[in-house]
């Protein structure tokens, strides 16, 4: 029996518009000229790729292209690795090698890595990220000073409640059976818990601007 629907791979032609560092007036003028000249191609998808330092010019280009009906599907921005590395190096990481038991609590300035289990009734509060390389049945609070970019990683997430910045999420009522590593993060003021693998894939895509 043949399928009613089939998926076939197909490569599509798209424009990659490279934006060089220049003054705004010139960029606007050239964008309009380009859009007019290639108007017959405006059904084609467009990806904008600014040079480093030209990121602030992207809105002018996109605005003008949209006026002529171009389909923008993304913007590819180069990662500035050197800068981001120096930022992370400044943070303090506290590593704890033990089982944190019921009634024990940790308050940490910076990131925390726990090589062990966080048992039911135990608490961790950190101003940065929390990584638990064991099962997590306690209460964890990442970004306790209000850092909304903080994440919570657990090898086995069984917590009744997790907190990021000033947001609280309760565990679903049914007993969890999943054992895959999971990560919790804030996305538009909601705590999202996702399989770590899915999260990695999602982040890769974001980095590539897809």
């Amino acid at each position: 029996m043949s399928n009613a629907i089939e998926a076939k791979g197909k490569s599509i032609v798209c424009f990659e518009i490279v934006v060089h560092k220049d003054d705004m007036k010139k960029i606007e003028k050239e964008t309009v000229r380009f859009a007019k000249n290639t108007k017959i191609f405006n059904t084609r998808p467009v990806i904008i790729k600014p040079d480093s330092g030209a990121e602030n010019l992207v809105p002018i280009v996109t605005e003008n292209l949209k006026k002529f009906g171009f389909h923008l599907i993304g913007c590819q921005i180069k990662q500035q690795h050197s800068e981001s590395v120096s930022k992370t190096e400044k943070r303090e990481i506290t590593a704890v090698h033990k089982t944190i038991r019921s009634g024990q609590s940790y308050e940490i300035d910076g990131d925390m890595v726990l090589f062990g289990n966080l048992n039911s009734g135990a608490e961790i509060k950190a101003t940065g990220n929390i990584v638990i390389l064991g099962s997590n049945s306690g209460i964890v609070h990442a970004g306790a000073d209000g850092d909304e970019s903080a994440v919570i990683f657990s090898m086995k997430l069984l917590s009744p409640q997790i907190r990021i910045a000033d947001k609280v999420a309760r565990a679903p009522r049914e007993n969890r059976v999943e054992t895959e590593p999971e990560i919790a993060f804030l996305s538009s003021s909601t705590i999202i818990v996702q399989s770590y693998n899915d999260w990695l894939i999602r982040n890769e895509k974001l980095n590539l601007g897809i």
């Binding site: 038991r101 019921s102 009634g103």
Partner: peptide, 16 residues
């Protein structure tokens, strides 16, 4: 039972 285990865990923490 989870309640008994959690209390036992607390006690182990205090003993340690």
């Amino acid at each position: 039972e989870i309640s008994s285990i959690r209390d036992a865990d607390r006690v182990v923490g205090i003993l340690e």
